[in-house]
């Protein structure tokens, strides 16, 4: 699957495995969660107030467009969270969680 983001440099870092919505994915050490997801997928999450999907906007922690979830219910800002090995992520709030 092609991603929204394209790697142009610094590609010889160690791979880091993680899961998004139950699917196995791979990022690189030093990636943010946003980079890791969007180099393999074209968006992060559905929009809450419209039909479109969202993929972050500012990448500097100011717009809050990139909030996704961990399977244990913790909400995280994908553009400013470093990727860690074995992360289990969800593009939508786990069942029963208020958005």
């Amino acid at each position: 699957m092609t991603g929204q983001l394209v790697r142009l440099a610094e590609t010889d870092r160690a791979p880091v495995a993680f899961r998004l919505d139950g699917r196995d994915m791979t990022g690189l050490q030093g990636d943010t969660v946003l980079t890791a997801i969007l180099t393999g997928a074209d968006s992060l999450r559905p929009a809450e107030f419209g039909p479109e999907r969202r993929a972050g906007f500012c990448l500097m922690g100011a717009c809050q467009d990139c909030w996704i979830w961990a399977e244990d219910g913790v909400r995280l800002r994908a553009c400013s969270t470093p990727l860690a090995p074995g992360m289990r992520l969800l593009s939508e709030a786990p069942d029963g969680w208020p958005a």
């Binding site: 929204q4 074209d42 968006s43 992060l44 929009a47 419209g50 479109e52 999907r53 969202r54 993929a55 972050g56 906007f57 500012c58 990448l59 500097m60 717009c63």
Partner: peptide, 13 residues
């Protein structure tokens, strides 16, 4: 509002 629209600052970061 579409996915794939970013700020210029974001493109640089």
């Amino acid at each position: 509002q579409r996915a794939g629209v970013f700020t210029l600052g974001a493109a640089q970061i």
